[in-house]
Every structure is written in structure tokens, then in C-alpha cells.
């Protein structure tokens, strides 16, 4: 977790959020979230019917894994806002890294609010998620 007193604008933090994403993890996410769209878990459907090269991860799995990096950074229960755009698909075998850059630090009635720009990239440095997060301390 970050030290709120030492943090400054422009600081960048990063964490690998998944290494070699497995189809099984996508199945785990389908099961727990209730989104059983076969496009995420059914290779035959995804390739033969939907026309994709393989199954691909739920956007919300990538957001969930990105959120893990954010809560590791800002601590538990401090997150106030978290929003993303899904810019590219995430495929089995992908390795993803999330980077968070401090964009603003404000003090509002004895609370420090820190806003981060958030980007999750795959192993080819292609952004799969771009967004922002705000935490209050």
C-alpha cells in the first residue's frame, strides 16, 4: 500500500495482475459472476459460430483483476471511484500488467483524495483497459 504522506503527482505504480491467463480462470469467473455467455468459455461456439479466434475473457474479469492492483495500492475500503473502458480483448495466454499514475492529490475536509490514471496492458504493450480510480484517506 502507498504512503499517502510521501506520494506525489506523476508517481507510477505497476503490478502484473495475471500471467498466462487460463481458460479455467475464465470459467471460474463465468461461474462466480453468472455471465455464462459461451463466447467466454465454449471454444467450439466461440470459433465456429461467433467467428472469433478463440474464447476471450469477460471484460469484467480484466476489470476485477485490475481492481486487485488498485486495492493493493490504496488499501481496503478506501476506493471511491473506479471506471474503465475496455479497449481490446483479453485472450487465453495473455499476461497483463496494470499501471497506475498519480494525477491529482486534493485535501477535502481533512481527507486526502488521490486520483490515478489506470492502464492495463497485455504482453505486447497493447492497452486492454484504460480508466481512472479515486481513493480517499
Amino acid at each position: 500500500m502507498i504512503d499517502v504522506n510521501k506520494i506525489k503527482i506523476g508517481d507510477i505504480f505497476s503490478e502484473e495482475i495475471v500471467n498466462n491467463l487460463t481458460r479455467t480462470q475464465i470459467v471460474q469467473y463465468a461461474g462466480v459472476s453468472g455471465d455464462y455467455n459461451p463466447i467466454h468459455t465454449d471454444e467450439i461456439f466461440a470459433t465456429k459460430v461467433a467467428g472469433y479466434p478463440s474464447v476471450f475473457a469477460h471484460g469484467m474479469l480484466t476489470m476485477g483483476m485490475t481492481g486487485k492492483m488498485i486495492t493493493n495500492l490504496v488499501g481496503d475500503g478506501n476506493l471511491k471511484n473506479f471506471g474503465v473502458r475496455f479497449t481490446n480483448q483479453v485472450w487465453p495466454g495473455d499476461t497483463l500488467t496494470t499501471k497506475a499514475e498519480v494525477k491529482s492529490i486534493e485535501t477535502i475536509s481533512d481527507k486526502t483524495q488521490i486520483t490515478f490514471e489506470v492502464i492495463t496492458e497485455n504482453q505486447n504493450n497493447v492497452p486492454v483497459i484504460t480508466g481512472s480510480a479515486k481513493a480517499s484517506f
Binding site: 453468472g34 459461451p38 468459455t41 465456429k48 459460430v49 476506493l79
Partner: peptide, 29 residues
């Protein structure tokens, strides 16, 4: 709960269209 946990509220939607229903055709293989 983790920050994106409410996404799983689909589990509690009886009509959620991305969950197979008993006795109904499903679009997966």
C-alpha cells in the same frame, strides 16, 4: 466485497439471458 463484486448480481436475476434455463435451448455448443 471486492470493488467489482456487484457484477455478479446477474446470479440473482431470474431472467438473466446469459444463463442457461432448464428445458430451454441454449446457444452454446
Amino acid at each position: 466485497a471486492p470493488p467489482t463484486f456487484t457484477q455478479s448480481s446477474a446470479q440473482f436475476d431470474p431472467d438473466y439471458f446469459l444463463r442457461p434455463k432448464i428445458g430451454k435451448p441454449w446457444f452454446g455448443s
